[in-house]
Design a protein around this nucleic acid. Sequence first.
DNA 1: TATGAATGAGTTTTCATTCAT
DNA 2: AATGAATGAAAACTCATTCAT
Lengths: 200, 200, 200, 200
Amino acid sequence: MNFDSRKPRADLRDHLRETVRTSILDAAEELIAANGLHEVALAQIARRAGVAVGTLYNYFADRDAMIIELFERRRESLRPLMAAARTNGKALAFEPRLRLLMRDLLGALESHRRFVKVAVETEYHKRSPSTTAKDLQAAFEEVVAVGVDEGVIARATAPLLTMLLAGAIKAVIMRRIADGGDFVADADPIVSLMLDGARA
Amino acid sequence: MNFDSRKPRADLRDHLRETVRTSILDAAEELIAANGLHEVALAQIARRAGVAVGTLYNYFADRDAMIIELFERRRESLRPLMAAARTNGKALAFEPRLRLLMRDLLGALESHRRFVKVAVETEYHKRSPSTTAKDLQAAFEEVVAVGVDEGVIARATAPLLTMLLAGAIKAVIMRRIADGGDFVADADPIVSLMLDGARA
Amino acid sequence: MNFDSRKPRADLRDHLRETVRTSILDAAEELIAANGLHEVALAQIARRAGVAVGTLYNYFADRDAMIIELFERRRESLRPLMAAARTNGKALAFEPRLRLLMRDLLGALESHRRFVKVAVETEYHKRSPSTTAKDLQAAFEEVVAVGVDEGVIARATAPLLTMLLAGAIKAVIMRRIADGGDFVADADPIVSLMLDGARA
Amino acid sequence: MNFDSRKPRADLRDHLRETVRTSILDAAEELIAANGLHEVALAQIARRAGVAVGTLYNYFADRDAMIIELFERRRESLRPLMAAARTNGKALAFEPRLRLLMRDLLGALESHRRFVKVAVETEYHKRSPSTTAKDLQAAFEEVVAVGVDEGVIARATAPLLTMLLAGAIKAVIMRRIADGGDFVADADPIVSLMLDGARA
DNA sequence: TATGAATGAGTTTTCATTCAT
DNA sequence: AATGAATGAAAACTCATTCAT
């Protein structure tokens, strides 16, 4: 017989706490995506999350801490997807690997559309550069290095290519967030253009 | 005897007004570039501009109007440069024209570094998309269309190329603002890569 | 068979309740002594006492009631000591009685150092003057009256002497709480000075 | 002719600012004396001072800074009085000098009754010991040292006497603030008692 | 027109108290 | 009874905007 009723209760409580925490962060993300980081008051977030203002402070030290946690959570959630994207093509040759990477990265970002919007919008206000942006950069660097090793890409071209691939991702994101289109469709044509050029 | 000193004085006055107006907008731009649009209070701007807060309201209806005018002025100042960039190569064939355009655009943007930073950072907060971004887009569209006419660029590739060229510009800007490098050096290699691909 | 476990359990329960009550008040006293009456939140007290905030309300009607009970308990605990101090010397003549009283009072207060600190600090915030301060006053009044009866103290001097004796106690307390010294050592010299003056 | 209208205006403005600053601090002192440091909201202070809440922040960085300035101003205002008290009797022998000092100190404190109440009430919440209390201590130390030099006071008695004199001042203050009596009347009897003892 | 103090609405933050489990 | 999350009223604080001089 289990006389210790504290453990299960604690589990339940933690679960409920996590639920509320999540609702709050979701509410915040939604409102910030729609109105901008500075245009959203805590009262709005609380209302949308279905809690009282004071409750926010049971979960986060202050406004800043809440925003920071929102970003960290989303990054944590993106990170494995991006890591997978980098791992997926490990066995492939440069070109198919790059194609796969581009698709996977755009797919990963697509699954976090709302956050991606917020992240792009606020990227520059932050003291430190976005970790996600850095991860993108690193992913392309890695694969482009493979291209160099295979002799497909000239060593001198590598840095520029890396920058343009990352830039292309941002361009796609920005456009597709604006017009509502999906991200992945552009993956293959971009790689083709980057590798073979636009010349007919 | 000429007692009517109003005409010449009016000129002087207008000139002074314009000087003050300019200082205010410069102060605003500087502070916004350094701290972000929402982190700058009017009191700061006034102090930096060397005027009293109340004076700001003699020049602009409110905070918003001031920011909007800052953007419009910089765009107005950029516009002829961008227009020139579009005109410069009119007589050239597609490729040299594109190369020239890329160089000129990056050069134009380089001369407005501070504003460019602000514009990129705030691009998404604005209800309407940045006119400058649209202008970029249009400039590339025009030249790419020439490439299509010349048969150098496949019609189907044109929109993607346009997007990537504009994206490349932003990538360069972002990187060079971050690391302090100059914009124009990247112009030619980018065009080469876009036209002929990165394949060795 | 005795299934009626209520009677003994009730004792146990009462005992437990009292234990918790005591921990809470001790925690409150400690924190208030360290940080001041208004700087201590109920959450802190609960944590230090090892109970949940809600539990506080099972023991005290509200914050105020808790503080009041803390004061009352300490006073209750001090009262017999002070009463004893007043009784102890009953048989003695004025001077030895006053010396004994001073020693005993300082000894009693010394055994409640923490509370004494809190009491002195908050003496003025309270609507009603501290009972303990009144008790001190009364104790000295009584003995000084004996001095008057014995003709050792002029009737006209009595009130002033009473006030100064009580004031001396506070001065000692304040100083010794600040520097960590003990209270009682000062008892005799003070009485000597008060009776015979500081003149060499 | 004086064409520079800025200087006099600045003087006027400074004067007005000082007036408002003073009203705010007076309002704060009054309310704190009546209700206690923590029981007074900024809104109350603003209302009593006849300004808007926001105005408080044009004069003080935050609540704390306001309180601190209140204390500092009153101390600044007391300091010369206490300094004068210490200087006044410089030429006198020990006993008359001590009598004069006691009268002058009580007189000085009497002229700052409201602040004295607040200071005594909050003395212990403050990290650093009250400067005023230290000044009292120092004043008595100085004169008692004279007594020692003159051979009126035994060197060994000096520290105790100093402590008791300062304690006596506080006792008087506390009692007279409570009952509304004036401070100075007690000065002479206290010195007599301290020097010659209460023995009839 | 320039000034800068005053304003107060809007936000963030705190915390005693309540309440469902 | 114990728990600790939820509540919301009250307090502190910010800052664009107004306005008297």
